[in-house]
């Protein structure tokens, strides 16, 4: 990693400048992460009196535990659903906005503000309009003969949290797709139009392939978002229920540790999640390095 050709000499100053950041990192990031790693190897008895070293037993138990495996598959469904729904909607809106000349900035303004809404608030909003007794959507669904109830139906609850999570993420994906679309050379599209390609044909054979770097980047970001930033949506609405149907991994860490007080298992789950984040971050950085030469 390079610095400037010319730098300041300094024996103490650079360390002093770095100190605040490094101290916060050590105390609130590295130390707790180390603690999680250490606790994942221990087991406490029911009263918290005795702690024994159990090696990798906590991990082995997790992968034999039906509830944990269920949480894994719930997370996959949730992350894929949120990513696909939100990216498809954002791509449709971005490529449509990109056609516009005069109204482009108006539509953009109307579409970006949900980024500012907290995930918890997004969850409560959708929880409210889907509320089985007073909500407006179940009322309309009832007219076509569907009984919506996210308090008893796992599938309904999953759809609800996917809607809330995807809704909040549309504006983010929209902005990145729009930036990607605007960087595609207009001459390519004009050439195809002169050759008689319709807008839809142009989209699938020219625009979409050229958007691949943006699409891959957004896929990774969206999966990270769905796995880690949606804790608030779950906690403020379904709380993992009904019957574990929306108990995603990051919520289970909290529920097992804070509510269930099963520290060893919760710490082991933390460690697994950290490994997943590290892997996803690595993939993300790989793509960023390669995104220039598509």
């Amino acid at each position: 990693m390079q610095t400037k050709r010319m730098t300041y000499p300094g024996r103490f100053l650079p360390y002093a400048l770095l100190a605040p950041q490094v101290i916060v990192t050590l105390i609130f990031f590295i130390w707790p992460a180390g603690q999680a790693l250490y606790q994942s190897l221990l087991r406490e008895d029911a009263f918290g009196l005795k702690t024994t070293f159990v090696g990798l037993e906590n991990f082995a138990r997790l992968f034999r535990d039906g509830a944990y495996l269920n949480s894994l598959s719930v997370t996959v469904v949730f992350a894929l659903g949120t990513t696909l729904l939100s990216m498809a909607a954002a791509l449709l809106l971005a490529s449509t906005v990109n056609r516009m000349l005069r109204s482009r900035s108006t539509y953009t303004t109307l579409l970006v503000w949900p980024y500012a809404i907290a995930p918890a608030i997004a969850g409560v909003l959708w929880w409210f309009i889907f509320n089985p007794s007073i909500g407006i959507v179940p009322y309309m669904l009832d007219m076509v003969g569907y009984q919506w109830n996210h308090r008893t139906s796992g599938a309904d609850a999953m759809l609800l949290v996917i809607f809330a999570a995807a809704w909040k993420q549309i504006s983010y994906n929209f902005l990145f797709f729009l930036a990607g679309l605007q960087s595609i050379p207009q001459s390519l599209i004009e050439a195809a139009a002169i050759d008689g390609a319709s807008p839809i044909k142009r989209f699938w054979t020219i625009i979409f392939p050229l958007l691949t770097p943006t699409t891959f980047f957004l896929m990774v970001v969206n999966v990270v978002y769905a796995m880690f930033d949606t804790f608030a949506i779950i906690h403020a609405t379904t709380e993992g229920g009904p019957a574990q149907a929306t108990n995603i991994l990051v919520y289970k860490v909290y529920a097992d540790g804070f509510v269930g007080l099963n520290l060893g298992s919760s710490a082991a789950q933390s460690v697994i999640l950290m490994v997943i984040v590290v892997a996803l971050t690595m993939i993300q950085f790989r793509f960023i390095e390669r995104r220039v030469n598509y």
Partner: peptide, 19 residues
């Protein structure tokens, strides 16, 4: 500093709370 990018608070919530 880079490592902090990889450790969202949700993931290490209990030990951070203890600290």
């Amino acid at each position: 500093i880079f490592v902090t990018l990889m450790l969202p608070v949700e993931v290490r919530i209990i030990p951070t709370f203890q600290v």
